[in-house]
Nucleic acid binder design. Structure first.
Length: 275
DNA sequence: GGGATTGTTTAAAT
DNA sequence: GATTTAAACAATCC
């Protein structure tokens, strides 16, 4: 499940192979996966040079010449990767972009939850989801980070996952950063003192950077731009470790639904708030 | 077959 | 308005 570090890793890999290349053609292999017809998409991207590949929140964005922006959201099982011409797309590859050197970019998604859309510059700015995204966790200063939560009575986990509050955090890095800061996911944001929020800021940035350095986490389906899995899943402290011992105190880890999502935590290291 | 899994939107309830 | 819960979305796994 690609979150910030995974999309960041893909963007870096894609940038190194696609920047400066020109898209020759787009092939839509699954009808309905992109709005409009294959012909319309292909006509708009053909002949466009890839100027850059970047990440915003969990979105992977290829900036094309002519103020066009190819946007991917990978959701749960989506992948974007580059192959040599000899590799045949499997049945879950929904869109193929052919580059001028023969390499091909595959948009693959086993469950078809993800999407691929083409925007002009003004269209992407007017897109409510994009316009409403909160600040990037790796760019925000500690004081500003703490201010995001002031006066908020919602649970900290719910706000960490809220893309309008903070962009790019999903279930993995929410749980990992809360564990590192010894905060129970059900704690109300307003009950967390500012110095503790600043610790959360530091730990969140640290876990994101460590994950990026490790090439992301491949808990299930994630692969980088070259089809390779990441390594950070081997360093999870809590995510997916229900009933395994807490690495700090040895207590068996618990799970609880918070903000509608399974949250894994240590009931000793992260004491639960009053209900 | 029921429940869980992913992120996001939308609707309804509190 | 803020917050919470649930459903819906597609497909798969246990």
């Amino acid at each position: 499940m690609p979150e910030l570090p995974e999309v960041e890793t893909i963007a870096g890999g894609l940038a190194s192979v696609a920047c400066g290349r020109t898209i020759m053609e787009a092939v839509v292999r699954t009808p309905g996966i992109v709005p409009g017809t294959q012909e319309a998409l292909s006509r708009r991207v053909a002949g466009r040079t890839v100027l850059g590949v970047r990440r915003r929140a969990k979105l992977l964005i290829m900036d094309l010449a002519g103020d066009l922006h190819l946007v991917f959201h990978l959701k749960m099982t989506g992948r974007v990767w580059v192959t040599h011409p000899a590799v045949d797309p499997n049945k879950h590859v929904h869109v193929v972009f052919l580059l001028d050197n023969g390499d091909r970019i595959f948009f693959e998604d086993q469950r078809k939850f993800g999407y691929c859309r083409l925007f002009s510059g003004s269209e992407i700015e007017a897109w409510p989801f994009y316009a409403g995204l909160g600040p990037e966790p790796l760019k925000i200063a500690p004081q500003e980070f703490a201010a995001l939560f002031s006066g908020r009575t919602a649970r900290i986990k719910s706000l960490l996952l809220d893309q309008g509050v903070l962009a790019g955090i999903g279930n993995i890095y929410a749980d990992e950063s809360l564990f590192r800061t010894s905060i129970h996911p059900r704690t109300r944001a307003s009950e967390i003192p500012v110095p503790r929020l600043m610790e959360l800021h530091r730990n969140l940035q640290a876990v994101l950077r460590e994950a990026i350095d490790a090439g992301g986490s491949s808990f299930r389906d994630y692969r980088d731009a070259y089809g390779q899995p990441g390594q950070f899943q081997e360093r999870f402290s809590v995510y997916g470790r229900k009933n395994q011992p807490c690495e700090r105190c040895g207590t068996s880890l618990d799970t609880e639904k918070v903000a509608g999502r399974t949250s894994t935590f240590c009931r000793i290291c992260q004491p639960p708030p009053e209900r």
